[in-house]
Every structure is written in structure tokens, then in C-alpha cells.
Amino acid sequence: MNHLRWYAALVVLFFAGDHLGGLALQHTADQSLFRYGRQYAGQASADVLLIGNSRGLALYQPYIEQITGLKTFNMSYNGLPADAATALALDYLDRYPNLQKIIIDVTLCDRENDALLAGFLTYAKHSDRLNHLIKDKIPSSWWGAQVSHLFRFNHEIYQRALYYRNRSDEDWLLDRVISPELAATAGEHNYDLDVSKYLIEQLHTLVDSAKAKGIGVTLLIGPYFPGFQVNNLDALKDDIEKTIGTPVKDYRFALSNPAYFGDFMHPNKSGSMAFIDFLKRDGVFD
């Protein structure tokens, strides 16, 4: 019987520690300067909202602010799928009514990413949309988070929140140049976009909600390394234009200098700046 009492104590200790640990981790995530922490803390007011996956990080906000004078907020994240982006962006629209424009790199309709979605459990306490999305799409993770508070922070998203606790995340961009050896093989590589109707529908919801609030929306395809083949990109563009009814600005060939890329899919810092200059000339920020 004595042993059973000790095991009962273990259960109590586990849940008490788990709860306290969860509170402490939530506090660090909320206090962080990481983008989603700032968003839910009410410190992400902007004129232009930038959305994308890792390619959306090329919409380098400090430079946009410098050349346009507009205040920006970039909510892009590596592999961010459109369903998570939509939940985050709709939350943003609720909290920041002064937003004027949204710029979206539509390649976030590439493929669903439930593994990343689970990471947003960190912020699910602040967002019914995220909470319901995670519950619907990955119930096992959602239930895990109901059992353990610590589990909600078991993801790279929380680790980034910890990393950016006292530092800005605005410089999150590739700063390397693709190696000449790898660049020379661009024609031998390709990437298959997995066009998701579900994600396009999610994006549709976001675009309609933004337009209903009088916010301008620009959909675009950012630049890829010259000669690198991206399959289904035209299909993605056509599907989006047909479903959402908004034209997609195609900048896949906007950068021709190999030195502007960190790899085949991502412009580096100088490439991003060149791309943003291109966008400005094209009137995207007007």
C-alpha cells in the first residue's frame, strides 16, 4: 500500500510540475520578441502584413520599411501552410484594425504541414481559431496538450520564441550565397509543388475576409533560382486565380543573378533587397 501512495504522489507531482512549468513557458513565449508572441501581445501593429512560408521571409521587412516608410509585420515561417497562416492572419485582422495591405506569397498553398501546425499549440491559448484548427486536424496532438501543459511547448516554434526572447527576429533571412558548384547543377534539380485545394480554400477565406474589411491584398510568387525547375507552379497560379478571383503576380524570374540566392528556393539578403526594389517599381506597395 505504501508503494501505491508513492505512485499517487508521483501523479500529483507530475501534474503540478507540468502545470507550473507550462505557466512559466507560456510566460516566456508571451514575453518574447518573436513574431507570434508580439502579435498576440498587441505589439505588432503595421500598415502592411507579409505572409508566406520560408520564401515569404524574403519579404525583408526592415528594407521595405526603409524604402517605403510603411510599417510592416512579417508572419512568415519555414513551411507555414495556408491553413495556419489564415488562422494567424484572421487573428491579426481582429486585433489590428488599421492594417492597409496584405502581401502573400502563394506558395504557402504548396502542401499541408501538420507537424508545424502542432507547434502553434504554444499560442493556442490566445486563439480559438488555432485551437480549433489543431483540434480538427491533429486531434492526437491537441489531446496531448490537454493532458500535459509542457507538451504545448514541445516544438521548434517555442524554441524560436525562447531564442528571440530578448532579440529581434526581423533579420531572419539567409545571408549565404549559393556555392558555384551547386549553382552549376540547377538544371538537374527540380521541386514538385503539391497543390492543395484545401489550402487554396483556406487562402480564399483570408482574402475574402481582408477585402471585406477594405484591406488591399496582393498575391504573388517570389523568385526562384534561374534554371531551377518548379513543377506545378503554373497549375498553382491558375487554381488560385480561378478559385479566389484575384490575379497572382508572377515574379519567379525576377532575379537572374545567382549571387542573389542562398539556395535554389530562397533569395538571400541582397537578393531579397533586389526583389523588394523590383516590387516597389512594380507598385506593389502603393
Binding site: N2, H3, W6, Y7, A9, L10, L13, F14, G17, D18, G21, A115, S140, S141, G144, S148, L150, F151, F153, N154
Partner: peptide, 23 residues
């Protein structure tokens, strides 16, 4: 030592919950 046991077990469970990969 039972007290050490529950601290060790609880710590392992916390670490698994916080750092484990459940795929």
C-alpha cells in the same frame, strides 16, 4: 529511496513531454 524515485520519474516524464517526438 521512494522520494528520489518520484522526483526522478516525474523529471523523466516532464522531459519526455517537453522534448519527446511523438510521431
Amino acid at each position: 529511496f521512494p522520494a528520489l524515485r518520484i522526483i526522478m520519474f516525474a523529471t523523466l516524464l516532464w522531459l519526455i513531454a517537453f522534448l519527446g517526438s511523438f510521431g
